[in-house]
């Protein structure tokens, strides 16, 4: 043992120590190799990615008549009320903004696709629709006026044409 200690002091590993160092080195290299192999598998995992939307692709130009005395449009009887519907496969949120106006937007916040029919709230004073998920805000035309600072691209909210003469109207997708 004393000899081994002396050899260590001189910077010369003993026989046992040399074996340890070699073992450590082999183990270290094996681990590095394993990590490199795992990294090489990453592209295979990426290939497993997929995205799917259930339901048909939306069709443009479709019109829908609505009546705020009937479901599901009854919430529009009150200013600030919201209703959701589907027109031509497009989910739409409708908002009663004034006594004479109903606005319609795509029922997906362009930030993270939160359903505005559930998370959105209309500010009658500012005339803005804000998404409750992450705070994106849109004006009456759908233009984004405030956007979460998370690196995503600021995108406007799709608005749809509405004609309204209480209690009935038409929305066109």
């Amino acid at each position: 043992m004393a000899k081994a200690a002396d050899q260590h002091d001189l910077g010369v590993p003993s026989g046992d120590a040399r074996a340890d160092v070699g073992s450590d080195r082999r183990e270290f290299l094996c681990k590095i190799g394993a990590l490199a192999s795992a990294g090489a598998l990453a592209p295979l995992v990426v290939g497993c990615e997929s995205a799917e939307v259930f339901g048909p692709e939306p069709v443009a130009g479709v019109k829908l008549d609505f009546d705020i005395t009937k479901e599901p449009f009854k919430p529009l009887a009150d200013v600030g009320g919201k209703a959701k519907t589907i027109v031509g496969g497009t989910p739409i949120v409708m908002v009663r903004t004034t006594a004479t106006q109903v606005l319609a937007f795509k029922d997906e916040c362009p930030h993270k696709q939160c359903p505005l029919s559930a998370t959105g709230s209309w500010d009658t004073g500012k005339k803005q629709l804000s998404c409750g998920c992450h705070g994106a805000v849109f004006d009456a035309t759908g233009k984004a006026v405030s956007w979460p600072k998370d690196g995503t691209t600021q995108t406007n909210l799709k608005a749809f044409k509405v004609t309204f003469a209480s209690p009935t109207g038409t929305v066109q997708a």
Partner: peptide
């Protein structure tokens, strides 16, 4: 990760959420 939901774009294209580093 990809944050958000797949959805139809206004042009009728299937959009997969971008991969972001957060």
């Amino acid at each position: 990760a990809r944050l958000g939901a797949p959805h139809w774009s206004d042009d009728g294209e299937l959009v997969t959420p971008d991969r972001l580093v957060i």
